[in-house]
Amino acid sequence: MKDLDITMQNPADRRTFLQRMTAAGLGVSAAALLAGCGTGNSSSATIGVSAAVRSAFPGVSGSSDNIVVLNYALTLETLEAYLYLLALNAASGLAPTTPLNVSSSVYAQTVSNGSVSSSLAAAGYLYLVEFAYVEAAHRDFLKNTLGANANPVVPSDGIYKFATSSGTPGSDLGTILANVYPLEETGTRAYLGAVPYITDNNTAQTAATIYSTECRHSAALAYILGMDIGPNRLIPGVPTPEQEVAPEIAPNIFEKFLAPSVVLTAASSAYFA
């Protein structure tokens, strides 16, 4: 704690610093994490999981805090990869269940552009292809890394749907991209909200490389859709951040974050068939 001593020399600095640098609620979870390592439990699924993580990630299994957090990430990446594939198939005139092709070059847009301008449609479709592969790669990476510990929360029948009345992504490029966009935004907020529960910096760093990729995807899709590239506070189809770094300043200064329980409830309600 030596570095903290520096701020102790100046109470005003320390107060300002802690007020500004720790978002509301974060201090509580961080303190709980410190207290909760390594205690045994009667259930083999929760041995070594802190009380803070057990309560923050309802329904997500794992034998350590990090494994719970990574299974949470795998839950979201599995959902994203599945829905991206549905979206890509819809935009390419393929049956919904068509697996991702070994070669990305087979894909070609068959639907109309919808609301996407003709000058941006080719880019929008390309991003749909690229991001579908990348989200599948994120899922596979987490799955492979977790190995036997991989246990994402999935729909009981394994089927996902879009949060539309028909459950399908739409029949033109603009509608399809607009229905994919909330997935990316939810993903960015979910990763950032999970950061305080990760117990080591190697895992945090790897998670962050995926997180900022989701931020990029979100910005690219927003651009194609003619929307603000973000971050924003209020986005239809995305849970509103219940807390953020500095709510008093402009919304585009900091990324937003969501509690894992909020994300899990929203995701299963909106996207589990």
Partner: peptide
């Protein structure tokens, strides 16, 4: 991203730093 290992584990500032980093990614994109 490269600075993350230099934070203390479970640093309360990591989330704030990541909240800035994500916006840089949006800008770069």
């Amino acid at each position: 991203l490269g600075a993350i290992p230099y934070f203390k584990a479970k640093s309360p500032y990591l989330q704030t730093a990541a909240a800035i980093q994500g916006t840089e990614a949006r800008h770069a994109t």
